[in-house]
Design a protein around this nucleic acid. Sequence first.
DNA 1: CTGTTAGCGCCTTCAG
DNA 2: CTGAAGGCGCTAACAG
Lengths: 346, 346
Amino acid sequence: MPDTPPEPLSVDAGNPRPRSATIKDVARLAGLSPITVSRVLNNPAAVRPETIARVREAIAQTGYIPNLLAGSLVSGRSRLVAAIIPRLSNSMLVDFVQGLSDQLEARGYQLLLGLSGYPVEQEEKLLPAILSRRPDGVVLSGTDHSDETRQILQAAGIPIVETWDLTANPVDMVVGLSQEEVGAAMARFLLGKGRRRFGMIWACDKRARKRYDGAMAVLRAQGIELVPTVEVSKFPTMGLGRLGLSELLAGGEAFDAVMCSSDTLAQGVLTEAAARGISVPQQLAVMGFGDFDFSEHTMPPLSTIRVDKRRIGVLAANALLARMDGGQPAQRVIDVGFEIVERGTT
Amino acid sequence: MPDTPPEPLSVDAGNPRPRSATIKDVARLAGLSPITVSRVLNNPAAVRPETIARVREAIAQTGYIPNLLAGSLVSGRSRLVAAIIPRLSNSMLVDFVQGLSDQLEARGYQLLLGLSGYPVEQEEKLLPAILSRRPDGVVLSGTDHSDETRQILQAAGIPIVETWDLTANPVDMVVGLSQEEVGAAMARFLLGKGRRRFGMIWACDKRARKRYDGAMAVLRAQGIELVPTVEVSKFPTMGLGRLGLSELLAGGEAFDAVMCSSDTLAQGVLTEAAARGISVPQQLAVMGFGDFDFSEHTMPPLSTIRVDKRRIGVLAANALLARMDGGQPAQRVIDVGFEIVERGTT
DNA sequence: CTGTTAGCGCCTTCAG
DNA sequence: CTGAAGGCGCTAACAG
């Protein structure tokens, strides 16, 4: 990059990317045919050790880097897996993607990241662009997809995993947990602690909504009908949690428990409660969802629902891998479950 | 996926992926040549509107999805950008990747995510795999790369952006900020507040190290030589922050300021201080780095250094885009700067 | 504005 | 164990 030698006058000074070494260059240098080089790379077991050495040498000399575009085109396998998720900033998804990527990379696959944004329908726009790279598998976040999306995906004829939720009718496979069950478990848990006057601070997001419905069903079964609820944006922050509690309190009702759709919100509630001198858990129980890194260090430590976020990614990768490597289809529906973590706020 | 019709007895029941529609199928159906279909997709301005309509119709009927592997192979442009970063869980990187992806997608590029893991040398392993997909550009996290890496990258002949740090000698381009300056600014700021007895809680990570050195240089210039330091892992958590303060205190020294390599650690310090009845900022000033979402909501709100994480991604994308779209080379070194955010802990 | 020709770089298939 | 032929699906370059 430093001092490029002055080029001889040329009409077009544009630099046509210097053609990089191809399999032929390597073959010529090694005095072998291209196919032999190819075999060294893809199926070394079928080549004599000496030959391998010769090829390796030639590869090193030429700095050859195989062109997977060409390879994939003819082999029909791209070793690429696409993940389509709305955005990374959803803290649940970060660990998930990390698990996915780790597992995939270990098996020689790579991750094409499609950040579709909200609303979910955006996913439909991204899909053709993604599919045009001929991934060997696709991972989707959530189970709510447009008919169009489902159809295109089916037609692609590759393994698909939906994640985070559960459904009896997956596009292909699904790895997740029952969101309704989570909500129900939260409600039951708090009820068991003797709480009766509930407030909810909830993000308006489809999966969160299911947890909400699950909780409300349990509450209603107990004859608890009036449950003041503050809806906040899809992107929960501590600030929104604080605001949420303020709004709830402004309603004039008395509460003995606040459920939040995420730990981030719950942390905000804790902060606002402290600022107002409301003692947690004595006067108010608080419960979140997610068990984020900070959750055991809030004051008091936050009671929440733990989901193994990374594991969802790992299992999704495995489900794909099983099919892509031609193994038998894994289970179509995998429930990773969840766990109530009782700490100091309940 | 539901009821696949029973195939006539065949030796191999393996399902060879049903060959999907190609540009020829579309061309035939539209009564045109393949190249015309190609033009409708890549350069519609060069095609008569009626013809476009005919082609669009045929595409819809066949469910044709272009094969970019083939297209990229011949055109020499993959419309793919690779980002190589150690791991997502580093909270600074999430917003960064989001910015990168948003900007790239808006311009029709997609993101290949390479999570290299630590140590940084791992990056070298991933590189050939990434490059074999022939990305049009590469984004790297940090500026510390092995010679091998730098060389392979140069040889690839594509635009490269390093990020987060600054260097006079980038592989190609760099978008970041001076880490030493950040450390120096933190030290100066705290000194200006009259603090003199410093403790450091610092992650052992290369960039954090530079901030540390920057801070220490300023401190030493003031004759402050003894600065007890607790080193923690690369992966800062609140728990480590708490532990960090405990260890610092166990040393028996008296402190009036604690600097942390990240807000996460600082939040832990705040928690531990509260638990011990140490009043912040009266007895102890605390300062972090990053200005995370939670930082304005801690108690008291955290003083920190703000970096526009997303913007680094956006500018990195722009730098690449300028070159990939054949425009003029952007500036080679872009300093995004930073900002001291004074809140309640100093 | 549309078509023809020729190959991108590699791997499958079949032959030695 | 190694090689020759052929083509994956598409687009650059050149004609018309």
